[in-house]
């Protein structure tokens, strides 16, 4: 496989997958959403089901929908999707199959500002995504925030993917919805703008610090089927992989760390070809 082809493979997969899972063109044209049976299933990435083009359900939205039920229940169905995707792919989903990850990647490619891999206090801030998962997605949706009516707290107060792929296209194409947009919409729009601006300078700030789905898949990274393997005996210790890693991981952390999104940049730059995707 040619070098250019290899370099662009991930981008091509990301674009193809985003179009595939958001391909309901009628929805974009009419300000409506898809209502077919495919929405019984969750897609692997963070993909708002209120995006006019979405043909599947967002796993985090689905998790909250079950937790929002009047009777508290363990969301086995959604956990099933997460276990299957996580066990096979781990955070490969984040690197290759997440539409919001693609947006952040594209913004990071803009030649503005001096690029940084991480925010200051990264070692503390990286736990933010676990806090979001526990307090907003789980506890927030099951007990708090809504008073008597439970609400999907993450979707309502934080999710920038919902604002970008759901709110903006729907409000553009639907006059009735546009007339109802108020303070909450502008709060979410503010979060989206901050994250998109940060993405130009920092590598994937939402994925590194806030994404609850990344927190879930990170747990599976240690044993998922898709791994990046390191042939230690072939390694010439040039550290090219560490320099290239957008998440700033060390050689020993690559692949097994919960922060590795399997982008494959380390594999591409290794002169000794001692890193590769393999079971």
């Amino acid at each position: 496989m040619g070098e250019t082809m290899r370099k662009n493979l991930r981008l091509k997969v990301q674009i193809f997958y985003t179009i595939l899972t958001n391909g309901y063109v009628y929805g974009f044209l009419n300000g409506k959403i898809y209502q077919g049976n495919l929405k019984y299933a969750c897609v692997p990435g963070l993909n708002c089901y209120s995006c006019p083009g979405a043909v599947g359900s967002c796993p985090i939205g689905a998790l909250q929908a079950v937790l929002n039920q009047r009777s508290v229940q363990i969301p086995f169905g959604v956990l099933g999707f997460l276990f299957v995707f996580g066990s096979i792919l781990g955070r490969f989903v984040c690197g290759w199959l997440c539409p919001f990850g693609l947006v952040q990647d594209l913004l990071h490619g803009i030649p503005l500002f001096q690029k940084r891999k991480r925010l200051p206090f990264h070692s503390v801030l990286k736990y933010g995504k676990y806090m979001v998962l526990i307090f907003l997605v789980c506890i927030g949706s099951a007990f708090l925030f809504g008073g008597f009516a439970k609400v999907p707290a993450f979707c309502k107060y934080l999710c920038p993917s919902g604002t970008l792929f759901g709110a903006l296209p729907l409000l553009t194409g639907n006059k009735l919805l546009r007339s109802q947009a108020g303070g909450l919409f502008f709060w979410k729009l503010g979060i989206l703008l901050v994250l998109l601006t940060l993405s130009v300078k920092i590598y994937r700030p939402f994925c590194q610090y806030l994404c609850p789905l990344g927190a879930v898949y990170g747990w599976f990274n240690r044993f998922s089927l898709v791994q990046i393997h390191w042939e230690e005996e072939q390694c010439i210790s040039c550290h090219a992989c560490e320099d290239a890693c957008p998440a700033g991981l060390s050689l020993k952390e690559i692949s097994r760390s919960s922060e590795c999104i399997r982008c494959g940049r380390c594999i591409r730059v290794c002169p000794a070809e001692c890193l590769h995707f393999r079971k």
Partner: peptide, 27 residues
């Protein structure tokens, strides 16, 4: 997945996903 389907949880997900989620879009 089988257990969730048997308990009707996929139906809950579908019902939520086919309606415009006003919370998700900030309304």
């Amino acid at each position: 997945l089988g257990l969730g389907a048997a308990r009707g949880q996929l139906e809950i997900v579908w019902k939520k996903a086919v309606m415009i989620c006003l919370e998700c879009i900030g309304i």
